[in-house]
Nucleic acid binder design. Structure first.
Lengths: 333, 333
DNA sequence: TTGTACGCGTTATCAC
DNA sequence: GTGATAACGCGTACAA
């Protein structure tokens, strides 16, 4: 059927070992025999079987990537970062979508391992801590993006959520706002929890007491953001500005505000977090915090490669600061 | 190092072939020996090596998926459809992002083949027709999503672009519009070309002569859509409605229109195509044509499986009709 | 019902 | 500089 190293050995009238040598650019092989072999390769259109190669080398040059949700708006850029960087190192990427389901995620880990991937990157990974610790105990290279449970010992690429929550709130404060609400996923997600901590810290520093009516908790979706904002608008004294922990919720807030005939930022200022693609397109263009997803994706591969070469768990944590992107949704009072 | 079939054979005091039998649920194996073996598997936490298995079986249970651009807004849903369906069939998916670069795409095909994937799905594939024909001549299973070059003999999942272009334009006509412009990628893309054909057809049927000033060509991006719309607005007699061949261009059109202080659909109606996620979020919510990307992804796997089992090129073409999604960006005159 | 032995395509170790 | 040959982990005739 398909042409193997044996075929081209015959064609070139040499042994398979010699062919293997030129295939892997090993030294000490005669120029002429080299040429003969390369010619045969061309002629028979031969391409090495990485599966067989992987079997003996015990490495696949594949890294596994498990996204907890491929439709997460941050996924594409993150994934592209991973793919691009992996390629630089000569690795291919095998993707899985866990559908936000921990069981599926666990299955994906198993599958990836049976496929002999050389390492795994998990993004937004959920609660499979046991599974991860198991991998770690087997010295299997793993890195996690975003989610760093406090007790985890897995190397992680994270973003400075507390810092960016703080930065966001401070920007609102410095724009003259005092009644600043927060729409958040709260303790439902690590990121929401941390960003809220930043929000509270900034408020505290400014000597403003946090009003629990101003903190609305929901899930990371447009619909939920809208509901949260509606509750805020129903308040007797609504806020003049709102910081949403995730852009999708900010967009939901837009819906609620605009549906009531109010204007942004005229009546209410809105500030998001994540800088997903939509945020620069929606009107008014959303002021938000960029999280450099492409860079994060790349960094996760760098870290994974480190894990792989170190051959023992590094337990590193690299955290990227967010960056405020000023657009049109916040006004100075 | 890692535990193999031999280890568990020893542990259970049977031969490897017996172990292999229970691993693959073959009949004719004693209940008790089965139990012994399963126990050993559990105890040693054994998991079969698919690479070795693939080597002998000559199949990997992996399908390759090459996206020409992972940041294309249609990608996530499409990909999820592929992954979900593949999993139903017991297949894993290996992704590549070709960055819209034909050379990269070609490399990806090579790489995927060396990884011994059982079939390849290409979406939005570019100009590597030769490469595809080569695959076909080797009876290697491939299916293409969207792009069907007229002379291609590769099985394809497509959408009825002509039909949906026609449908979109007709909707505008039936809403009372007569001065209907078209923002399009034109013959730069197959989809744009076909949608324009539908546009022209609808106009012709309505007895309206196509005005070439009303047809603005650009690329599929927000910026380009904006530029196109600006040119339309600069016309002495601007259109009352515009059909954009791609939602991203429609969003660019929004920018141009709103930046001039005009309203949608008050002053100008806008209709898009693709129903990408943003379109339901942007305000006014964009009326557009849905293309059922999740279903397309799934269908492409079905078709690929067909190709694989048939063992000879099917040259099928399955085309899905688009569906009008009425929202708020078109008004009746 | 179970075991032996070979082959899958490749690399690495040793001779020559 | 080159060629046998034994692995790698598994499935499968064939034998027992």
């Amino acid at each position: 059927m398909s042409v193997t190293i044996v075929d081209i050995a015959k064609k070139a009238q040499v042994s398979v070992s010699t062919v293997s040598r030129v295939l892997n650019n090993k030294p000490d092989v005669n120029k002429e025999t080299q040429d003969k072999i390369r010619a045969a390769i061309k002629e028979l259109n031969y391409s090495p079987n990485s599966v067989a190669r992987g079997l003996v080398l015990k490495r696949s040059n594949i890294i596994g990537y498990i996204a907890s949700d491929i439709t997460n708006p941050s996924f594409p850029e993150l994934a592209r970062g991973v793919v691009v960087k992996a390629k630089e190192y000569g690795y291919s990427v095998m993707f899985f979508d866990a559908h936000q389901d921990n069981r599926v995620e666990k299955e994906a880990i198993q599958l990836l391992r049976s496929k002999q991937v050389d390492g795994i990157i998990l993004s937004f990974s959920g609660a499979n801590r046991d599974e991860l610790e198991k991998l770690r105990s087997e010295r299997f290279p793993v890195v996690q993006i975003y989610r760093k449970s406090s007790k985890s010992t897995i190397s992680t690429i994270a973003i400075d959520n507390v810092g960016s929550g703080y930065r966001a709130t401070q920007y609102l404060l410095s724009s003259g706002h005092k009644r600043i609400a927060h729409i958040t996923t709260g303790d439902l997600t690590q990121s929401g929890y941390e960003r809220m901590a930043g929000y509270l810290k900034a408020l505290a520093e400014a000597g403003i007491e946090a009003d629990h009516h101003f903190i609305q908790q929901g899930i990371s979706s447009v619909e939920s953001g809208k509901v949260c904002m509606e509750r805020l608008l129903d308040l007797e004294k609504p806020p003049t500005a709102v910081f949403a922990s995730h852009d999708v919720m900010a967009i939901g807030a837009y819906e609620a505000i605009l549906d009531r005939g109010l204007t942004i930022p005229g009546d209410i200022s809105v500030l998001g977090h994540d800088n997903i693609e939509i945020s620069r397109l929606i009107r008014p263009h959303l002021t938000t915090i960029d999280t450099f997803k492409f860079k994060l994706g790349q960094a996760s591969v760098d870290l994974l490669i480190e894990e792989m070469t170190a051959h023992e768990p590094q337990n590193k944590e690299i955290v990227f600061p967010g960056e405020l992107v000023v657009r049109d949704s916040v006004r100075a009072l």
